[in-house]
Nucleic acid binder design. Structure first.
Lengths: 228, 228
DNA sequence: CCAGGTCCTTGAGTTGGATCAAGGAAGGGC
DNA sequence: GCCCTTCCTTGATCCAACTCAAGGACCTGG
């Protein structure tokens, strides 16, 4: 049972967040996970559904030869844990201290109308996967990175539509991914991610730092334009 | 209403197929579409759900500069038409003469338990999207093409697991995509698709023709191995 | 059976991003 | 504060796939 293996050692750093996390958890139980710890692994038996309460989760697929691909990034409110033949095809990893609500699928299926809630969620995720496929298939490094930055910007300052003049107020955001993980999500090498971030900084479109993971969008319109 | 625009002129070529298509269509209506005709378009108002009864459908996204990406290929039984903010973000195109069952979402939501049927379908599609993301992000041309061939092979001779000796019986299949469309699905140029198919032919792994779209898998194990 | 369009194939040259390599800045533990 | 690990950054070189180009095969309608 590698399933619950990471919990104990995590309690401390996750404690502060557990307190403000538990919203209505219909038929589930909240669990806390520490940075980089697995929630389930490729090949594990499925049967539960998961919702991110706080933090961020990545789904990744590994090939035997070690190549790795992040296929989805999940933020608060997102459901995950969909499996096809009874076992997971991805590994779910907490990108930072994260609280997850775990629900048994059989319990959910007893509750009516939850099916549609799930269906809508999955529909949204399919759309996101399609956006990402467009990015990986046809967009260059700069476009992919701008699209990713917008992904995180959307969750913070959720302004519906920037003023045409180009919002002068910078947007500060925290990206819970290392350069390597950004590369794994975007189908790029970590060096290319670095170089492209540096280029965007040089252009005055974004600012980096002061801490790792911090990014400030200085010209939202520019980021939007470059994301395509 | 570009929505129903392609139907009339399609009737003839689709007629033969309409007859054997209509399985149980709970609350929907079957419609026939001709090769390369749109079922709905990027930006169209959503509100219906669709199921492929026979034939094949592709979902594509277009960028303003003309870059195109097929983001999903749907075969008989697959649901599509999930939209987020009330309008479609993809265009759905019939890859060959195709019959689709169209259902109004509001009708479906009245029927209990359909939600879960939909959720399971979408879960399967998410998994497929994730496989495809792995392909576009980290696999080379040969691996992507072998993965695509397996996709179509699975729907024909659905043998659960080939004999360890490497099934000597060749698998004949029809790929309802032009080289260009294969490229658009796999994030490759059509020339690369050609070259890679030729290379696989040279290696004796597949045979091509006699008609366009026909592919015969001569060494299933080799295709599997190369798909990664 | 022929004409014209669409699709496929192969060659030659180019390039965006990968890989290899080396150092520098954060950050966590003692 | 210092050490050690992890992460970030930049440079140099290389290569898989792209682009441009030119034929050839297939397919449909007349």
């Amino acid at each position: 049972m590698a399933f619950y293996g990471n919990q104990a050692e995590v309690r401390t750093e996750a404690k502060l967040r557990v307190q403000d996390a538990p919203r209505e958890c219909h038929v589930g139980v909240c669990r806390a996970y520490g940075k980089r710890h697995a929630i389930f692994r490729q090949g594990d038996k499925a049967g539960h559904l998961y919702r991110v309460e706080s933090g961020a989760v990545a789904l990744e697929i590994l090939l035997e030869d070690g190549r790795r691909q992040l296929v989805e990034i999940l933020l608060a409110g997102d459901l995950f844990g969909f499996a096809v033949d009874g076992s997971f095809e991805e590994t779910a990893i907490a990108l930072e201290a994260t609280v997850v609500c775990v629900m048994r699928q059989c319990d959910l299926e007893r509750t009516d109308a939850v099916g549609w809630e799930v269906a809508h969620q999955t529909g949204r995720q399919i759309t996101r996967a399609h956006d990402q496929l467009m990015a990986l298939g046809r967009k260059n490094a700069q476009e992919r990175i701008c699209q990713l930055l917008l992904r995180f910007a959307r969750d913070i300052g959720d302004r519906p539509c920037a003023e045409p003049g180009g919002g002068p107020e910078p947007i500060r955001l925290h990206v819970p991914l290392t350069r390597g993980e950004m590369g794994d999500y975007l189908g790029l090498s970590l060096e290319t991610v670095c170089r492209t971030m540096s280029a965007l900084k040089q252009l005055g479109v974004i600012a980096i730092g002061p801490r790792q993971g911090d990014v400030t969008i200085l010209a939202l319109d520019e980021v939007r334009r470059r994301a395509g």
